[in-house]
Design a protein around this nucleic acid. Structure first.
Lengths: 135, 135
DNA sequence: TGCAAACTATACCGTTAGAGTATAGATTAA
DNA sequence: TTAATCTATACTCTAACGGTATAGTTTGCA
């Protein structure tokens, strides 16, 4: 029931890139040092942000990373899903095999957890990185 | 970011015990069969519910398990915490070492996640097993 | 008294996911 | 052409998860 380390790093990566001038590029080395993330692990982790269209990468000399869109268009949810995939707080919400055991209708736990998960997703989606920076 | 199998089993165990007459005892074998939980794993898992004061155990012949209190006094949160410990959605909310890196005040991600976690905890605490059964 | 039906305690096992490292390769500016 | 960067893939180590095994304790009852 916990976001993993890569996600936590990713929050900090995106927050840092959000603090730069629009379009400004930072190298992996700079980000790693600033945010105290192991360099090679950062390189691996940031790939999911690139693939998700949150971060853009530039190869070669003077290359590096920059946000692919405006901080206000990136939410916590975007980052979580980029790194961990869809938010599912319980297996029965992922695989309907579970929880249909002794209930004709989906079991009540199933339904209530579904509601709680929906709230969680909504809240994560409600916070973008422009707002975060402003605080 | 997912509740584990033991927690899911525990929801079903408590829900089943809630459906019995007050004070009625069910053996591990019965619960295991009804809820399709491996018997030995159930015996291990249900210990945390006993230790948390949610379930009472009775040893010896005619022994078994029953709720230690009324279903309306047991919430989803009680069960989650009994099995997994306190709900912490991010490491920085567990260990203040993290996230204080480049911020004098706690970092904004930290603070927002704290709020989201509070909502999650409140919602889990809002649903008791009497309500769940009634649905 | 002794036995069998239950739970308890502890320890073990196999698999998977998480966190991080390593190596070789591709791209690009100068 | 070279050096600075990112990319791809694969590897390692550890801890947690899910489950099993064994031996022990408690209790009702014949």
């Amino acid at each position: 029931m916990q976001l993993n380390q890569a996600t936590d790093y990713s929050f900090r990566i995106v927050l840092y890139l959000s603090s730069l001038a629009p379009g400004e590029i930072a190298t992996a080395k700079t980000i790693a040092q600033r945010e105290e993330i192991p360099m090679r692990y950062l390189l691996k982790t940031i790939r999911s942000l690139v693939k998700a269209g949150i971060v853009r990468s530039y190869r070669g000399v003077d290359g590096g990373f920059a946000l692919a869109k405006s901080p206000k268009d990136i939410t916590l949810l975007d980052v979580v899903e980029a790194v961990e995939g869809p938010v599912r707080i319980n297996r029965c919400l992922k695989d309907h095999e579970y929880c249909t055991k002794h209930w004709v209708k989906p079991c009540p736990v199933h339904r209530v957890l579904g509601g709680i998960q929906a709230t969680l997703i909504r809240e994560l989606g409600d916070h973008n990185f422009a707002d975060l920076l402003a605080r």
